[in-house]
């Protein structure tokens, strides 16, 4: 019973941070209807930015993320403005062209980071890295708990931004119907640029929160791309509550899989869920919520 509780708690804590990364992806997918295979690479770049802050100037990762986020926001805006938006006007045989462009971006980012930092494994050792506390018999890792709380804070802030501000409403309008939003005077191309930047900033935030928990190397991006895809499809494209629930569900499923099946097959659990949802519940959790 304690083992079960332990697995569920750490799954939820980790899942909350995955959810933050996935919200960046679901936002981009919802607004632009594009599949962004570079999302994990953006997480990775954000993690390196936070890592540099820690290594060079001794800035704590939880503060370093406020350096990484604006940087990644800028990078995301540039990618959208000068690459993906351009592609809308290019005719080609395969509609998957934009997916492949994000693959190209992913390759370039990953290899650039490898050029600078080599493929070495790196980690951030803070004073609280190994600390744990007990919560009714269940031990909780401090960086996990703090990361989870910050992630939930960001989620709430994002929710307020999307529902209460003009810009947030424009983003949601563009996601619902780009043409109609254009007629209503929304500057859709600008909105897409800001959305991609926001998605990249969320990726950086999630990555920075996970930095004290994961080893860092240039190829870690693939891991996060896969996870955010699973969450996005699980939650339903473009749905924030879906992404949150999906993130928590994936975290718990992986944690249970690792505890009761095996560490190696943990990732298979996520992928099988992904396939099943894709096939039998194409709208994801969002469609279940809407049915109520």
């Amino acid at each position: 019973m304690v083992l079960l509780g332990q697995a569920v708690v750490s799954g939820i804590l980790l899942g909350g941070m995955y959810a933050l990364i996935a919200m960046g992806m679901t936002l981009v997918m919802g607004v632009m209807k594009i599949i962004n295979l570079a999302h994990g690479a953006l997480v990775m770049v954000g993690m390196y930015a936070t890592y540099i802050c820690f290594q060079q100037w001794g800035i704590d990762p939880y503060l370093g993320m406020f350096v990484a986020m604006p940087l990644l926001f800028l990078l995301g805006c540039l990618i959208q403005r000068f690459m993906i938006n351009r592609l809308l006007h290019v005719e080609s045989i395969l509609p998957e062209n934009q997916v492949l462009l994000t693959v190209g971006v992913m390759l370039v980012l990953t290899e650039l980071v490898r050029l600078v930092f080599r493929s070495d494994y790196r980690s951030v050792a803070t004073a609280y890295s190994g600390k744990t506390f007990f919560l009714g018999g269940v031990s909780v890792n401090v960086p996990m708990a703090v990361g989870f709380l910050i992630a939930m804070g960001f989620t709430y802030a994002l929710h307020l931004f999307l529902t209460r501000t003009d810009l947030g409403r424009s983003i949601r309008a563009t996601a619902q119907d780009r043409e109609a939003a254009l007629y209503m005077g929304v500057n859709a191309p600008r909105v897409t640029v800001i959305t991609f930047g926001l998605g990249a900033a969320l990726a950086a935030a999630g990555g920075s929160l996970l930095l004290p928990l994961f080893y860092l190397w240039p190829d870690i991006g693939h891991l996060f791309t896969a996870k955010s895809f699973i969450i996005t499809i699980l939650g339903g494209m473009g749905s924030m509550p879906g992404a949150l629930l999906g993130g928590l569900a994936l975290g718990v499923a992986e944690s249970l899989g690792a505890t009761y099946i095996s560490m190696g097959y943990k990732d298979v659990v996520g992928l099988v869920i992904f396939l099943l949802v894709l096939l039998f519940l194409p709208g994801g959790l969002k469609s279940l919520l809407a049915r109520r």
């Binding site: 592609l87 290019v90 462009l101 190209g104 971006v105 992913m106 370039v108 290899e111 050029l115």
Partner: peptide, 21 residues
């Protein structure tokens, strides 16, 4: 060395943007 894929990645982006076929 290990980053031999970098030029290829750049070329991929350029081809998709400017020679989509």
């Amino acid at each position: 060395g290990a980053v031999s894929l970098l030029p290829f990645g750049v070329l991929v982006c350029l081809v998709i943007l400017f020679m989509p076929n």
